[in-house]
Design a protein around this nucleic acid. Structure first.
Lengths: 238, 238
DNA sequence: ACGCCTTCGTGATGGTGATCACACGCATAT
DNA sequence: ATATGCGTGTGATCACCATCACGAAGGCGT
């Protein structure tokens, strides 16, 4: 398969982002080869849709480079972002395994690259390799956990402040310093943050102001500095 | 293993609730026998907790008789019910497969019976029977779908009326008549309904009044009659 | 029959966040 | 420079629903 958009393709992208929880690591030699045969790699520009909510599942995408956002929308146009995916993540797995329509839309937030594995091939591959099926099951149950966290956040923590604090903390843990502060490159618009925590853009703006005033965070250009982790945890407290 | 609470035990409960999506149907003879060896059956009274949020996963429960509610709570005591389980459902599967703490509490809503399969035995069983692992994966992805529906409901439909209407419809579809009305035995308290749709008891009371006045539903004793399905669907519209 | 507990109905009140509106800064394009 | 668009800050308003409060109705044991 030729790559769209005329960009380069890495030869073997499946192994490039080696992460602890990577699904397709440590396979037997034959399994690895088979996987290489059925996958195809492509490059996507910013804004490209890997798949769209409601489509029949064509296959899974293994993200190699770039970030993607997973979102779902109501008829009236309200949108929630359920996950920000990074390289190594496997997208569309649930739909492919259960053969139901994609439940989310996956959109590239920046130019990137992904491996595509067609549904039929993957299912056959799993039938032939029982040990991988179990690993897939593990991955699915991890996905479930994440979804459950989301449910807890949406259902139990009522106020936007709480959810905002929770989001900041989830960013903070990735880049924690020993002195309690941490820095994150802020690539999301207020609108997008609003879609993550289920509120409006205006409220997010006000939350930023409020948290700045309370010395909880600080902004230098597009760099977000989280000042007071403990205070944030106190706000969350669920 | 002896049954607690001094009640009777069915000999082979695994096969009693034969449902389309039943996990452990149509197994090979050996697999079926092995499964029978590692399972144990017990009877539970109303209010019994099969497992509690946060506990290390001991194993899965296959519900044979009785209903159970799955719920999760915040520290401040707010509770949401995420699922009402019926016979045939497999509880605790996600936690067992991913070896993380139970993410919910499972409580019997009425006296019932369940098979228990210890974690270690199940995992070994799955390793030995690759084809079952794939079926487990399918089940997990169905669970994921359900969770996703919950996220959509919580995140996208803002008003309690909308969520209430959605709940009524989900009950209605199970027992639909051809004339558009349907009857359901209402076994939940307003408090529990509130925990399902994420609002307060008082609001549920008021919703009942409001919907009665609008001729959307009717109550005869504990029998709920849903009068106007289309109007409900119009309220939902997400 | 009596008290006790759970469930349910409904009024009054107040806070919170969605909504609308508009202005500003800052890109990039013309 | 001017235009156009996007992302952002912030004020004013208002509906909605959580909360508190209380009473009524039913179930259950003693």
């Amino acid at each position: 398969m030729r790559a769209p958009y005329g960009l380069n393709i890495l030869d073997n992208c499946l192994t490039c982002p080696v992460r602890e929880e990577h699904l397709f690591c440590n396979l037997s030699v034959q399994a690895g080869q088979r996987l290489n045969e059925i996958k195809s790699t492509a490059v996507y520009p910013k804004g490209a849709m890997l798949f769209i909510e409601g489509q029949q599942p064509r296959g899974v995408f293994v993200l190699c480079a770039g970030k993607a956002k997973l979102s779902t929308s109501s008829r009236e146009g309200k949108t929630i972002i359920t996950k920000l995916s990074e390289s190594g993540d496997v997208l569309g797995l649930n739909s492919v395994v259960s053969n139901r329509p994609y439940e989310v839309t996956a959109e590239m937030m920046e130019p990137g690259q992904a491996n595509f594995i067609p549904r039929e091939s993957l299912i056959q591959f799993l039938k032939d390799n029982g040990e991988v099926a179990l690993r897939i099951a593990e991955q699915l149950s991890r996905n479930y956990y994440t979804a459950y966290e989301e449910i807890r956040t949406l259902g139990l923590s009522s106020s936007p402040s709480e959810k905002f604090a929770k989001l900041l903390l989830s960013w903070s843990t990735k880049t924690s310093q020993n002195d309690g502060s941490s820095q994150v490159k802020l690539t999301l618009t207020h609108e997008e943050i609003a879609e993550i925590i289920g509120t409006t853009r205006e409220t997010v703006s006000r939350l930023f102001s409020e948290f700045k005033k309370k010395q909880l965070l600080q902004l230098k250009g597009s760099t977000l500095i989280i000042r007071n982790r403990l205070a944030l945890e106190k706000i969350v407290q669920s």
